[in-house]
Design a protein around this nucleic acid. Structure first.
Length: 287
DNA sequence: GTAGGGTTAATG
DNA sequence: CATTAACCCTAC
């Protein structure tokens, strides 16, 4: 009818963010009924909240275009004072549980009419198979999948949405125009690592080291740097005794890197919203 | 009620 | 013509 699309206003978006901070992501109905947000979100359903949060999350986690601030909001400090000073807790909506080790690696016979089952698997499979160090562009992925399975004519369009979704769960990362598997996901997906004979570790981790890192976010840079250090340390330690120690150290590093990334996301979010933070606050996590 | 897949209008 | 944001549908 007369309303093609009802775009979200800054107020609605703000209410949603605060609602999630208060009640947590997933409690859409609760947020929508909360007297604090209900006036603003009256025209939105709980599903609308969920969808909007999904878009927001993907935008936030999709690091790549940080130059473009998505805050056309006039931002009036006088009328709309900074929201809840007490919060935090909610890290980012992006790092959700990605528990799916036994991801079905179904071959999906092309003969079988598989209308909906696991396009995600095909994409991950394609990315894994292509192994492009710089990532694969959508056309490549599309082509690859088309060769293995019958897909619908509008598959390319679906693929874009699918990729975005995979990025949302940190299984895929976007580099410029291309997509590739995330380090963390690739590691667990294609590394049984079951070598009882304990072969010597190959130090072929230069795949991404030599690549240009300029377009990655600082947080990811840190992750990459940590990964490189880990790899380096791994190559250097030949002593069998030290091996275990290294493993533990690596695990710890990975942990720290992850939390650092989380922190970076939080900081970036806040800065995007116009909040000012001091180094001291950051150092003491008092924000 | 929620999560996720999928579709369509809108925009660069 | 590719991508995004809002919307819709279905399974759990």
């Amino acid at each position: 009818m007369g309303a093609p699309k009802q775009k979200w206003t800054s107020e609605e978006e703000e209410a949603l963010r605060r609602g999630v901070l208060k009640h947590g992501a997933g409690k859409w109905r609760t947020i929508q009924k909360d007297p604090e947000f209900s006036p603003v979100l009256s025209s939105r359903s709980n599903i609308d909240l969920k969808d909007k949060w999904r878009n927001l999350s993907f935008s936030a986690s999709g690091l790549g275009s940080r130059d473009k601030l998505r805050v056309p909001r006039p931002k009036a400090p006088s009328s709309s004072p900074s929201p809840s000073p007490q919060l935090l807790l909610l890290s980012a909506p992006n790092n959700v549980a990605e528990a799916s080790p036994p991801e079905d690696c179904e071959k999906s016979p092309q003969d079988d009419k598989t209308p909906s089952p696991k396009y995600s698997s095909m994409i991950l499979e394609a990315l894994d198979e292509l192994k492009e160090p710089n990532g694969s562009e959508v056309a490549t992925i599309c082509n690859f999948i088309e060769q293995r399975h019958e897909v619908q004519p509008n598959f390319r369009r679906l693929l874009c949405a699918k990729l975005r979704r995979l990025i949302g769960v940190n299984k895929v990362e976007k580099i410029d125009k291309s997509y590739k598997l995330t380090d963390s996901y690739a590691k667990r997906a294609l590394a049984p690592m079951k070598d009882p004979s304990l072969k010597k570790k190959d130090s072929a981790k230069s795949s991404k080291a030599a690549k240009g890192l300029g377009q990655l976010s600082p947080a990811l840079d840190a992750a990459e740097a940590a990964a490189m250090k880990v790899a380096d340390a791994e190559a250097k330690s030949h002593l069998a005794n030290e091996h275990m120690m290294e493993v533990e150290r690596i695990g710890k590093m990975a942990e720290e890197t992850e939390s650092l990334l989380e922190l970076a996301s939080e900081l970036y979010e806040r800065c995007s919203r116009g909040e000012a933070l001091t180094i001291l606050q950051v150092a003491h996590r008092e924000f």
